[in-house]
């Protein structure tokens, strides 16, 4: 199962990186989202994989490592804020520049719409 998990992380990283390397803003936002899934899963894995041992104190004597979980929890929320910021940035860029390219255009299109 550890192998499958690692394969998942690897596939998510690959897909995320490929999307990040595109030239338009929206696929990059998707790529960032995908990468944050991968990073969260990776960080989570540093507490190792455990089944049915949630860190809710009870009669059990073995629990999943709660520390990576706490870190990942805040990472998910911050990741959302980052995704939101980048997507709003791309909306703003499209509104100001008239296109959604991420590369600097040689014939700068600022003000074309005026």
């Amino acid at each position: 199962m550890e192998l499958l998990y690692s394969v998942c992380v690897g596939v998510l990283v690959s897909c995320g990186v490929f999307l990040i390397l595109r030239a338009r803003s929206f696929p990059i936002v998707l790529g960032l989202t995908m990468l944050s899934y991968a990073v969260n899963l990776f960080l989570f894995a540093s507490g190792r994989l455990t089944i049915n041992k949630a860190a809710i104190l009870s009669a059990n004597d073995q629990y999943a490592d709660p520390l990576p979980q706490a870190l990942v929890l805040t990472a998910i929320v911050i990741g959302f804020a980052m995704t939101a910021f980048s997507v709003i940035l791309s909306i703003r860029a499209r509104a100001d520049l008239g296109n959604d390219y991420v590369n600097q255009q040689t014939n700068n299109k600022i003000g074309v719409k005026k």
Binding site: E2, L3, Y5, S6, V7, V9, G10, V11, L12, V13, S14, C15, G16, V17, F18, L21, A38, L41, F42, A45, S46, G47, R48, L49, D65, L67
Partner: peptide, 23 residues
């Protein structure tokens, strides 16, 4: 490049989860 990244991160992840935890 993307596949390379996936392979490297996946391998590190695999190496990580299959080792005992000292937390």
């Amino acid at each position: 490049i993307a596949t390379g990244c996936g392979v490297v991160v996946g391998s590190i992840c695999y190496a990580l989860v299959t080792r005992p935890l000292d937390s």
